[in-house]
């Protein structure tokens, strides 16, 4: 464990806590894409298959349980909570996210490290996470006024994978093992997808104005 990975995990944890805080306290999911939340639940479900078979550390297991629990409970809140579901804007959240799942699954079937069920699922989760934010970014462009918590959620979610890239660079220079190029590429693509969001997020922060993404 290095400072970049710890910072990345804490940033990721902060993003899910900000979202849970928003949905649980103000009982609203306005501006939040259910599609992205469903994709993330699938990302964690397919990435953490080894949670019962391979024990790495208490930290690793606890964090996996937090990410699995938070992503599935957020999906449940938006779909089934009698108050929260009313604030879900399904007419705006129209990204066809299964069109993201299918290419990621096909790519994982052809481009992977080992052709085993766990490995293909793990690779699928990497590819899927890289594009999982797209429905949320599309929804933000349609939602004129982005509330602070949703903006902070997306910012933290994008920042965590950026920190992981520093973690991979650090490990590349300090450990004998190697970080597989699939992880590198998926992580870089994922972070690049946030590039324009980061730009507008910093602009709004610098000029102290409401965050608005150009349509």
């Amino acid at each position: 464990m290095n400072i970049f990975r710890l910072a990345g995990d804490m940033t990721h944890l902060a993003s899910v806590l900000v979202l849970l805080l928003k949905i649980h306290t103000i009982k609203s999911c306005a501006g939040v894409s259910l599609k992205t939340q469903e994709l993330y639940a699938l990302v964690f479900a397919t990435r953490y298959l080894d949670i019962v078979t391979d024990f790495i550390s208490v930290y690793n297991t606890v964090m996996k349980l937090i990410f699995l629990g938070s992503s599935f409970s957020i999906v449940w809140y938006i779909r089934h909570h009698r108050v929260v579901r009313r604030s879900y804007d399904k007419d705006q959240d129209t990204f066809r996210h299964y069109l993201l799942m299918i290419p990621c699954m096909l790519l994982a079937l052809f481009v992977h490290e080992k052709f085993t069920f766990k490995e293909v699922m793990w690779t699928f989760s990497l590819y899927l996470e890289a594009v999982a934010i797209l429905p949320q970014l599309v929804l933000l462009q349609r939602t004129r006024n982005i509330d602070n918590l949703t903006g902070q959620y997306v910012f933290l979610l994008g920042a965590y994978r950026g920190l992981y890239i520093f973690n991979w660079i650090y490990r590349y220079f300090t450990e004998p093992h190697f970080v597989h190029w699939i992880t590198w590429i998926a992580g870089v693509v994922q972070t690049l997808l946030y590039a324009d969001f980061f730009y507008y997020y910093f602009e709004s922060w610098k000029n102290n104005v409401r965050l608005q993404l150009p349509a």
Partner: peptide, 10 residues
């Protein structure tokens, strides 16, 4: 083993 290190990551 020269297994990828990222398997111990989240």
């Amino acid at each position: 083993s020269n297994d990828t290190v990222t398997k111990d990551e989240l």
